[in-house]
Each structure stands twice: as structure tokens, then as C-alpha cells.
Design a protein around this nucleic acid. Structure first.
Lengths: 311, 311
DNA sequence: TAAGCGTCATAGAAAATATCTATGAAAATT
DNA sequence: AATTTTCATAGATATTTTCTATGACGCTTA
């Protein structure tokens, strides 16, 4: 049984005439004769009664088959409608991930921007480590992610979006408050608070100031395993030490903010590149583009947008 | 869009793997690749996300299409079921006609017999003149008819079922009551009651006794235009005259029956042949056969069954 | 009642389509 | 890096659909 055959049955049932039905289907009359005969043989019942000169009769079976066929074509049209809707990349939920050190600062700005550009694309958000996000992305549990490390995987595409300079966070009463900017080497002998391993930002900070690795033994560096940048910021405010933050993390103003000061690094300031990444096979390019646009429009302060150069 | 393509979509959605899906469909893997690609292009959306080594992903569109496709196949199976049911010739209503001079005597016997043989075949019955029945049969408003004249029309098939001798009906006090049998020529000078023109039985009686045509002028013959055999029988009982009846019409016993007597013709008695007729194109031969069997089993008295010779 | 017409069926050729085998590309795995 | 898995592509082949031409059959008409 084929949809074409059913279409022909409907036409003949409607026209009660093979010739006219053929015309309506834009095929020749023998085409209908053959197709309907084939279907009748498959079903084992005759659907029409061909009686020489008189009217073409429809058997009760033919009547019922035609009726059912009409329902089938309703569903077929349903598939077409459904596909036409789904054709819109900006329709349907999108699963977006972001690393812990970006999500709390970017998402509040990103979401309204994205909602404006794609109101029919609800977001399913997840914060996690780069490693976990990458795995979920590959498994299809995420559609896109925002990360701060280059992607190696060949099945994943990415686009750098902006560069985020690092800054030093100090307690308000710290002697460095008098300085305009700091050299990374100056951090060596400070009591630095760092995120736990797994956070890429930790690695990036250590790359900027390798001496901190050594100072770990001396007790000057303190790794806070299950913590977040916000927690560390509060600890700095309370005078427990200093830390390095991505500049976007300096924006939130909690009540303890007057206990904190930020100082930039001297140029060229260390920084990280934030990228948007997605599966190479993800079939909604316009959804990716919408996220990119939304991030660029998010109005993050103190970042340098990366526009032209791709990859 | 074809049902085959939808079948493939369902298989891939189910197996989440082109190779296994192909196996399940008993086709090669490239067949699926090509078919699904074709459907994706027609619909303008990708249904699956092929990602090299990892899991095969289904897009939201693919999910919805597969769901709808499943519904379509339910309906397709519905058509098959429906056809399987309809395959039974003895299923579904049958429109049966019979002429006025047969219906009241045959149908009461026929219906229970037929119901026994084809309980799922309800009858739509109609009494009418041969001419009208024939027209309706050709138009499809009837499926079969029981008549007493040979069929000329090439689009109609018929089968003689039984031969029905004629008998003479006389009032109980008629002098002929003493006779064992009658010659048709003896009717010439009797006051005969006849059915109106249009009834084939009238013509058949006139054929048996052409002299009655002449006696019409002499007032001995009386044609009762809008009447029936039953009415005529009552008139005979009341003494208005005599008449000729098909022997099956002598069976009903109304309260006036003791006022009536029947006398056969001398052999060879005039008779008529009752046939079953249907459109050559009518597609339920077993329904026809069931009617034939039911009529032969109907246990009509005084008739001679015609079995072997067809046509 | 034969000729013409309308209608559907059949046959064989042509066209379109579906399927196959073989092979390639890409990413995951060893 | 080599191997394996998985899907895509290409070209050949098989199948199916469709077409043109023609036939059969019954109706209509002269």
C-alpha cells in the first residue's frame, strides 16, 4: 500500500469516474486503473464496481477505505505542518550549558537578549565543569555551551566571543589598594585563594602566575575545593586573602562589596577567551547565531569582543 | 513523502542506529540513508543528527515526525483490517429486490434461511415491478433481485432457481370444484380477475390463455390496476370471479381461505421460472450464492427446483 | 441492429525511483 | 597511528510507476 495509491482511491471515490479522477491527479487514466487494481489485489477486496456504461459504483469496502485514507492524509499534512514549524531554528527548546565561572555573570544578561531574539526558544540551562559540559554536548544532552578553553574535539565547533581580562581582588584595607595596577609576579608571596581543580579558571590563573604552584607548599596558596568565585569573593572581603577574578565577576554588587577592591594587571593583562561551542552536527545554525548575537549584545563591561576572526 | 520513508524513520527512531534499523527493515544501510535524506529534504528539516562515532540523535522535529508516522501506520493497519473484514462477501448490507408477485410468498421463507447462512448480511428489501427493479439494479441501488422473466441485459447475470406452476383459484362454491384439473382453454368464458399491466405475471397469464384478451371486450375479464395477488384472492373468495395464481401464492391462509379452492392445470401445467439476477460487476459472488442456497432451502411447496442448468 | 461513443482494462515501452554493492569520510577506540 | 564503527556517496541494477496505444464492453443513436 502506498500513499499514491490511497490518493488515487480518494480521487476516484470523489469523482466517481476514472478519467476525471486521473485528470485531477495529473496522471493518465490507465495509471489509475493499474494502481487501484494493485491496491485491490493487495487488500483482497474490490473498492469500486466498474459497470460499463452506467455510473461507477463504490463498494462498502471502498467507501470505508476512502474514508480512512482521508484521515491518513490529514496526518500526512500534519507532518508537513509540523516540519514547516520545526524548520525555524529559533523554535523549540535549546539546551545550553556554561561553566561555573561564567554562568552567574553572563546568563543574567544573556537571557533577556536571547529571549528578545528568539522568544519561541526556551532555554534549558546547566552549569558545570568544562569536561562535563563537553561530554554532555557530545552525547546530545546539551546543544551548545559557553566555555573558556579551546576545544580540541573534532566533532565540536566553537567560536570565540570575547576576551575577558583578569583582575586582582583584594580586601579594601590591603596595601595594594594604593597601586594602579599589578604585575603577575607580585602575587607570588600573597595569600591567594583559588578554585578547586576541575575549574578551568584555576588552571588559567596558575598559568598566569606559576609561582603560586610552589607557594602551595608554603601554605600561602589556598585551594577551596567545593567553592565558587562568589564564595571566594566573600572570603576576600572578609580579609582571608586575595584572589584573581575574571573581570566580569567584579560586577555583582553584594552588600560586602565595599570591603573589596579590584586592581587590574599591568598591560598586557592576562585574560581568557570565552567561546561558544556546539556539535558540528547540530542542525540549528541560526540558533547558534542567535546565542552569539545575544552574548555580544549582552553589554558585559570590561571585555573585548572578538568579532571577525573565526575559530 | 511515502509510507516507506515513514517506515524507515520509525525504524531509525526506534533503533537509534542506521545499520540496525536497516536490518530491521530488511534493506541495506545506504537505502535508509538515501531515503531519510530524501524525506529530510522534502520536509526541509533534519530528523536525525548523525554524529560520527557517538549516539545517533533525534531532533525534536524527528521525534514529532516519528510520533505522527506511528499514528499513520495505525490507520494504515486499520485499512488492512477493514479490508480483511470486507473480504467476507457475507458481511455488509445487501440490497435485494423482488417482484410484487413473489416477494410476499418467498421472502418470509427466504429471510430466516439467509439469516442463518449470512448472519452479518442485513437485507434491504424492495418490492417493485420487474422494470423498476432492473433499472435500480443497474444503477447500483439494488445488488440483486428475484424476478420471473428472462433477463436480456448483457450487464446483468441471472440464474433460474425454480419453476412455479400456475393454478386456478375459484370460490368454494364454484362448479369447477368437482374437477381434478383444468385446461387453460376452459378459462375463456370465465369472469377472470387480472393484475394491472406492469406485473409480469399478468402477461404470463395472458400468454397461457390468449383468449382472455378477447374476453376483455366482452366484460368477462377484469383488470384490477392498482391491486395485488392478495387482494385478488380476497375478491375471488368473495365470489367476484376466478383467477390464476402462481402456486406459491396459495400458501398463505387468511381467514377467508375456506371460501377458496385451487385447481391445478392439466399437465403440462403452465408455469413461470423464477430467477435470481445481479449485476455482472457485482463483486460479492458468495453473497449471490448464499441467496440462491437460501431460496432453494426455503421449502416452497409445489415448485420444481432448477439446479444444474445455468443461465 | 449496426455504428459510434464513453468508459475502463490491458500490453508493452519508457521513465522514474528504490535498492544494492562498493567505497569514502569522519570520529571513536585500541 | 592503526583500526573500527558508523553514516554518506556513487554508480549499477532492479523494481515500480507511468505513459501511449489499443482492446473490450455496454450504452446510445440512427
Amino acid at each position: 500500500m502506498t500513499l499514491t495509491e490511497l490518493k488515487y482511491v480518494l480521487a476516484v471515490a470523489r469523482e466517481k469516474h476514472f478519467g476525471r479522477a486521473a485528470e485531477a491527479c495529473f496522471v493518465s487514466q490507465p495509471t489509475l486503473s493499474v494502481a487501484i487494481k494493485k491496491l485491490e489485489e493487495e487488500l483482497g477486496v474490490s473498492l469500486f464496481e466498474r459497470g460499463g456504461g452506467g455510473e461507477l459504483g463504490i463498494t462498502p469496502a471502498g467507501e470505508r477505505v476512502a474514508e480512512q485514507a482521508a484521515h491518513i492524509f490529514e496526518l500526512v499534512d500534519g507532518i508537513k505542518d509540523l516540519a514547516a514549524q520545526a524548520k525555524d531554528d529559533l523554535q523549540g527548546p535549546l539546551k545550553l550549558g556554561a561553566i561555573y565561572t561564567i554562568a552567574p555573570y553572563l546568563l543574567p544578561e544573556l537571557i533577556p537578549q536571547l529571549h528578545e531574539r528568539a522568544p519561541k526558544m526556551p532555554l534549558l540551562l546547566e552549569e558545570n565543569y568544562t569536561r562535563v559540559l563537553t561530554e554532555k554536548l557530545k552525547k546530545g544532552e546539551l546543544d551548545a555551551m559557553i566555555i573558556a578553553t579551546p576545544v580540541e574535539d573534532p566533532s565540536i565547533l566553537s567560536l570565540p566571543l570575547y576576551e575577558e581580562p583578569f583582575v586582582v581582588a583584594i580586601p579594601a584595607d590591603h596595601p595594594w589598594k594604593k597601586k594602579k595596577s599589578l604585575e603577575s609576579s607580585e602575587l607570588e608571596n600573597e595569600s591567594m585563594l583559588l578554585l578547586g581543580s576541575g575549574h578551568c579558571f584555576r588552571d588559567q590563573v596558575l598559568q598566569v602566575c606559576p609561582a603560586l604552584n610552589r607557594s602551595a607548599q608554603g601554605g600561602l596558596q589556598k585551594t577551596l575545593e567545593s567553592s565558587s568565585l562568589e564564595t571566594i569573593r566573600h572570603m576576600v572581603a572578609s580579609g582571608m586573602g586575595t584572589t584573581v577574578l575574571p573581570c566580569t565577576a567584579t560586577r555583582l554588587h553584594s552588600t560586602s562589596d565595599n570591603l573589596l577592591a579590584y586592581r587590574p594587571f599591568t598591560k598586557p593583562a592576562p585574560a581568557r577567551v570565552v567561546s561558544l561551542a556546539w556539535r558540528k552536527s547540530f542542525p540549528r545554525p541560526r540558533a547558534i547565531e542567535a546565542i552569539r548575537q545575544a552574548i555580544l549584545a549582552a553589554g558585559l563591561p570590561c571585555v573585548e569582543k572578538i568579532r571577525p576572526g573565526k575559530r
